[in-house]
Design a protein around this nucleic acid. Sequence first.
DNA 1: GAATTGACCGAAATAACAATTTGGTCAGTC
DNA 2: GACTGACCAAATTGTTATTTCGGTCAATTC
Lengths: 195, 195
Amino acid sequence: MLDRKPVDRRRQVLEAAARSFETFGYKATTMDQVAKLAGVGKGTIYTFFDNKEELFGEIMSGMIRQLRDMADRTVNPELPFVDNLMEVLHRILDYREQHALAAKLSQEVRDIGTPMAKEGLVTLERAVVAYIARHVKEAAERGEIRPCDPELTAYVMLKTYLALSSESPHLHRPLGKEEVLDYFRTYWLEGLAPR
Amino acid sequence: MLDRKPVDRRRQVLEAAARSFETFGYKATTMDQVAKLAGVGKGTIYTFFDNKEELFGEIMSGMIRQLRDMADRTVNPELPFVDNLMEVLHRILDYREQHALAAKLSQEVRDIGTPMAKEGLVTLERAVVAYIARHVKEAAERGEIRPCDPELTAYVMLKTYLALSSESPHLHRPLGKEEVLDYFRTYWLEGLAPR
DNA sequence: GAATTGACCGAAATAACAATTTGGTCAGTC
DNA sequence: GACTGACCAAATTGTTATTTCGGTCAATTC
């Protein structure tokens, strides 16, 4: 016999919390709300999670896992490193804009600066950098790119990509996906030194 | 005869305002305060400047002019483009951290997010990008670097430099001046493609 | 009569206080 | 012993009173 309960309350709570966080954000999600949505007494939540912060953390790691899986699925080992990188970054950005939770957290940080929401996005960024770093390291080991500090390189790559693709539309016109790829390739692979 | 008044009230106001803005920030600087410091009636300020915003703008352009002059003085036409660029960026960052007004505005934005202070810093960043862009353009014309969109390149260069030198100390250890120069040269001049 | 001033005004910020909400607990129920 | 929801202190929000500040302009000075 499986030791599964007649109703899996932990899952109920988790799903209700996910829905609430992505609909209302961190701050506006109340534990009463989650309990109601999960059809569970408030106390029950605290038998699974120590506090609101931990519950939120659980949702976040779920999202990050989901994002990593998606990224893994888009990587094609046949293709060159930069092409994979650009595709992954592109999808991640799309994801970040489209995924309800990430979008809501961004908005919450902009609008009211909830510290926990900020922290969540930092965690997300860290995960992205770590993911890129892994691929940079592998590409360097394969000799596809020159040796370099993977973490630092990944971080600067992400910043470059963001600068090119989305950031500060005040400072330059928005670029198309192809243009971003071109510039990224020029800057990062070939360098500006005249051939 | 010069048409200089016995006392140059405009200069008095400008100097008092500069001192006040860099000591107290934008928001905490009051027009009464400036008038007192300048030893001038409040109404007098309004004979020279339409409003507080314009007075602030005048101070800002003064600072930007001063910064550009400093940058021009550090550029050595004998040296390669990247070396000049790094030295200029380094000095500008130093300047931004040390110049009382810029530092105060950064703090004000962090602490209370005064919109006018934010706008002032954006203006400053725009000026920096424009300055770099000019040098990128010239370097490209000299054939020292390959042709590229000067504005966009300047913008991404600034972002790279900031990512390497100061930003988010959470995500990677702070780098020394030499390390920053090395990485910048690797990323921007040589590229990551294996030789 | 041109330049200068500072008392004055309304709008906006801030402080002070009251009312409500919320994360978390735990005695009691099933 | 899994589960609940009334309960509590602390934090947040709503409200009102008070102060501050950018800007004006009639009065004053030179």
